[in-house]
Design a protein around this nucleic acid. Structure first.
Lengths: 203, 203
DNA sequence: GCATAAAACGAACGAGCGTTTGTTTTTTCT
DNA sequence: AGAAAAAACAAACGCTCGTTCGTTTTATGC
């Protein structure tokens, strides 16, 4: 008989090569994007033949979704940990989150970069799934910004979008060896009109 | 004889279909990105056969470069005009530039969106050319930020990168019918610690 | 140690890719 | 009107794509 259907056997006892395969896919998607990454590239990077990939994943899109999910998971973990150990000052909590966000985005593995490199529009069949996961993450920043003590005329939504956009865009100009990510995050936060704790302009 | 070499005849008397072809390519590149846009897609959108495209452009990459250049040209024109009619206050000049930048990026034609949708890395052969054109544009913002009266501890480089990143990222969440681009630009600028004219904190 | 299941192989499939080429149609200029 | 140039056509080229499939290898559990 042929190989069993991959999706029916997801949590088997082993699947040893699943993780190296995901790593290879993440590296490929990060470097070349989704459409320019071929299954042959990915398989070769993982040390197997193209057909063998289909034992672990049902399709190229499923591979992308798995990488994307892992990327979101890693960013969430890093940011959540940073927030948790940042005390209670809303500004300090936001700063910690931004540092962690940029750290995992610029330094660490390929997974996180795939999240901002591959657009949902690139994978129509799974676009809503990717977008939903990303939104779930950004929800954290919604809460962080909501806790800030801001001048009443400032729009918190646009503050969040400005900040996240500015951080994410760093991938276009950042180069290792220059400013460390944490310093970049601090410098950008310093550009924003966010009063320090107990420094409200309307006391 | 066959068709003449396209690059040898660039500035002919007509070339009527060059512009519609560029338009179709811009729409395709914007919607699907570079690698997912095929010459057959583009040709069909322009109402011709795939082979006919090569009378006007030497390759798919040349088509992309032409679209990209036109995109940069349009953004530059819009922003330059906005700056020129914005008076002398540095903050007002930056605000005008941001409004124009976002206007042309979100509302107007596909050309401008291609500039931020297609990454130089997607087209290795022309990557440096694309990057150079984009840098030439961003130089304008370097000057605008340099003219601002800022607290000495603020990093102007990171202020520029935060602002441009935040604006460019708008393409991921903007939807027509919501906030108009000019309003978004104003709201984001209002989040930044930029003193109004004659309001320096170190008088 | 042998049945069994996991995992990779090797070869192919049809489709679509960017591009080339010789020819034909359309337009322009005299 | 008729030559010359511009522009589109139609058909293929070699190649790579995502994916399928029957088989073979590799590891596990009794």
């Amino acid at each position: 008989m042929a190989t069993p259907p991959a999706h029916a056997r997801a949590r088997s006892r082993q699947d040893n090569r699943r993780q190296p395969l995901l790593d290879a896919a993440a590296a490929c998607f990060r470097a070349r994007g989704f459409h320019a990454s071929s299954m042959r590239h990915i398989a070769r990077a993982a040390g197997m033949l193209p057909g063998s990939v289909y034992y672990h994943f049902d399709s190229k899109e499923a591979l992308l979704v798995a990488v994307h999910d892992e990327g979101v998971r890693r960013i969430c973990a890093a940011v959540d940990a940073a927030i948790a150990s940042a005390g209670h000052d809303p500004r300090a909590r936001l700063a910690a989150a931004c540092r962690a966000h940029l750290d995992v985005l610029l330094d660490e593995s390929d997974y996180a970069q795939v999240v901002i490199r591959v657009l949902p529009e690139d994978v129509p069949a799974a676009a809503s799934e990717l977008a939903a996961h990303r939104d779930g993450y950004e929800q954290r920043f919604r809460h962080l910004v909501a806790a800030l003590d801001l001048p009443p005329e400032m729009d918190r939504g646009h503050l969040r979008r400005l900040l996240l956009g500015g951080l994410n865009w760093a991938r276009h100009w950042y180069q290792p060896g220059g400013d460390p990510p944490a310093h970049i995050a601090d410098a950008m936060l310093a550009c924003l009109r966010i009063p320090a704790a107990g420094d409200g302009s309307t006391p």
